[in-house]
Design a protein around this nucleic acid. Structure first.
Length: 278
DNA sequence: ATGGGGGCCTGCCGGC
DNA sequence: TGCCGGCAGGCCCCCA
């Protein structure tokens, strides 16, 4: 699933479709995703104007004219499909409904936004906009890794005294919000830090710019694939990036040629070069 | 408080 | 071809 760069790319793809539009239809095909969908969801969405579409960590937040905010989380397998919109010279017809199309929103101009999520680890909720930051899913999140609050001083303080592997610490959304399993592997590779090294024994200073670089590069790659995507079928949510270590077990390290290894930590795969990363 | 493990769901892929 | 185990990019909860 989508980590921060993928969610940001989805957001950018949805902005021209949703921002400033009025929701005229909301089809809810099941009562729950990871947890129950909000009460009277369709009634609370229909007629609302979408004022802005924001992102916090891996969450999309649509602020509505009703004073409520719609939260969307893609989980592991969540996808969003845009249809019925004219993008440049391409017009996306509405496709036949697919299995796992759980929520379909229709805009006043006829555009349709379909949320599809096979595994249903995703989520949606509605809350008052002014207190959205207090929502259980958002309240305890760490700083945005691309924001000003995330710096060497902060990260160093959060890693101090932690015996947990640096891999786990960077995956912890309470420490920094938005990294997932893929980009943590990529960051540690660039930092030449072994994923099993204790957080407390890891120098935070080089990690901060590397985290920013990796995420920014992935967002840029998403932006370019977004154009391609929207010329084809309008699907948002999955993009092919070039990873240096993720899912490359057995393939040569691009720096030294040593085979990349896979290590399971807390039930999650880490990929790393045993020669370059210490 | 911290760290590790299990569980939620479905789909896909490789091995037999 | 079919079945089965293992695995998947997230996150929460519980337990020691």
């Amino acid at each position: 699933m989508p980590e921060l760069p993928e969610v940001e790319t989805v957001r950018r793809g949805l902005v021209p479709v949703m921002e400033g539009q009025r929701i005229t239809g909301a089809q809810i095909n099941r009562p729950d995703l990871r947890f129950p969908l909000p009460e009277n969801m369709a009634d609370r969405l229909i007629g609302a104007n979408i004022l802005s579409l924001r992102r916090r960590s891996k969450y999309l937040l649509a602020d509505l004219s009703t004073g409520e905010t719609l939260l969307i989380h893609l989980g592991m397998s969540g996808r969003i499909l845009i249809s019925g919109q004219i993008v440049g010279e391409f017009h996306h017809e509405h496709p036949a409904p697919q299995k796992h199309d759980h929520v379909v929103l229709t805009m006043a101009d006829g555009a349709r936004v379909t949320f599809n999520d096979a595994r249903r680890f995703g989520a949606m909720d509605l809350m008052r906009t002014e207190t959205a930051h207090n929502h259980a899913l958002l309240a305890k999140l760490g700083p945005e890794p691309l924001g000003n609050d995330f710096d060497e001083t902060y990260l160093s303080a959060r890693l101090k005294g932690r015996l947990t592997p640096i891999k786990s610490a960077l995956l912890d959304q309470h420490i920094v919000a938005g990294l997932g399993n893929i980009y943590v592997s990529e960051v540690l590779y660039r930092a030449k830090v072994h994923p099993a090294r204790a957080a407390a024994d890891t120098d935070a200073a080089p990690l901060v710019p590397l985290i920013r670089d990796v995420l920014n590069e992935a967002i840029e790659a998403g932006g370019s694939s977004l154009r391609d995507y929207r010329q084809t079928d309008g699907e948002l949510g999955y993009f092919q990036h070039r990873f240096q270590v993720y899912d490359r077990a057995g393939e040569p390290c691009v720096i030294c040629g040593t085979p990349i290894e896979r290590l399971v930590q807390s039930g999650r795969s880490s990929f790393y070069c045993p020669h370059c990363q210490r």
